[in-house]
Amino acid sequence: MSDYFDELAALLRDRGVPAERVASTIEELAGHVAESGADPEEEFGPVAAFADSLGGDTGAAGDDGTAGDGRAASAGESWSWTADIFADERRLNEFGEQGWEVDRVDRRGMFVSHRDSERPQRWEYRRETVWPEGRSAVTERLAPDGWEPCGTWFLYEYFKRPGAASVGPAAEIGSPPPAPGGRLFFSARFLLILVAFVLLTVVAGWVVVGFIGSAGSGDDGAGFAAGVAVGVAVVGGAAAALWSLARRDR
């Protein structure tokens, strides 16, 4: 793995990419490969061709300072964004309809995307839950329908295909809308879970503090026992609600 990135760094320097940008690009790409477990050459292609796509005037980093695909700067707009697991697939297809193509998912969970400025076209996306050892099997199963992997986040594998695969020439966009203004797209369900998690933490802390206070004061513990019972009921109910919501991730 290190040989690939050492050669890539040397090729980028030969192409005039500033040393600081080379370092940040290599760090980002190496982090991505370390998290995904992919082989660098399988993930990015032959090192010389990949260096060509990243080097020169196109720049080697996205607009958020992370390493990009290289096509973003040269072919049009670039944009990085993220969404929670309840909204990601819907948002991917929403932005895909606007011409945004995801190049990869970076180590922060951001969808690093670009849109062709000359001939933007629609993109379609889907998400699959896979274990690392089953990733290649899922990729092979979806490939005949035009799906190709475009990012990995824990056990989630994201796939894309050009809209032309399903709608033909109608996939080309005449006048794409402006780039969305935000970068974070969280659903109401995710925010509800976040609030519930905070409440669970507060209740758990309250139970612990009550236990310490009761033990220190020599209290008979009756009041504390009642508090624990209430706390357990609240935590149990909230945990059940969280589990129910988390299971409905589609």
Rank of each mutant, 00 (worst) to 15 (best):
L92F: 01
N93L: 07
E94R: 11
E94H: 10
F95W: 04
F95D: 01
E97D: 14
G99I: 00
W100K: 06
W100Q: 05
E101Y: 00
V102P: 01
R107I: 12
R108P: 00
S113G: 09
H114S: 02
R115H: 02
D116W: 06
S117I: 11
S117P: 01
E118C: 07
R119S: 03
R122M: 12
W123A: 01
W123R: 01
Y125V: 01
R126W: 03
V130S: 13
R135N: 00
R135K: 03
S136P: 07
S136M: 11
V138F: 15
V138Q: 15
V138N: 15
T139L: 13
E140D: 12
E140G: 10
E140R: 09
L142I: 13
L142H: 10
A143Q: 11
D145E: 12
G146N: 07
G146M: 09
G146A: 15
W147R: 06
C150Y: 09
Y156E: 11
Y156T: 03
E157P: 04
Y158H: 09
K160M: 02
R161L: 00
A164Y: 02
A164T: 03
S166N: 11
S166P: 06
S166R: 09
G168D: 07
E172S: 08
G174A: 15
S175M: 13
S175V: 12
P176G: 04
P176A: 14
L184S: 13
L184K: 13
F185Q: 01
A188C: 13
R189F: 02
L192K: 11
L192F: 09
L192P: 02
I193S: 10
L194K: 15
L194I: 09
L194A: 14
V195Y: 12
V195S: 13
A196S: 07
A196W: 12
A196H: 10
A196T: 05
V198K: 15
T201Y: 10
T201Q: 09
V203L: 11
G205M: 05
W206Y: 09
W206G: 02
W206D: 04
W206M: 10
V207M: 00
V207N: 00
V208C: 14
G210M: 07
F211I: 11
I212P: 04
G213L: 14
G213P: 03
S214C: 15
S214A: 15
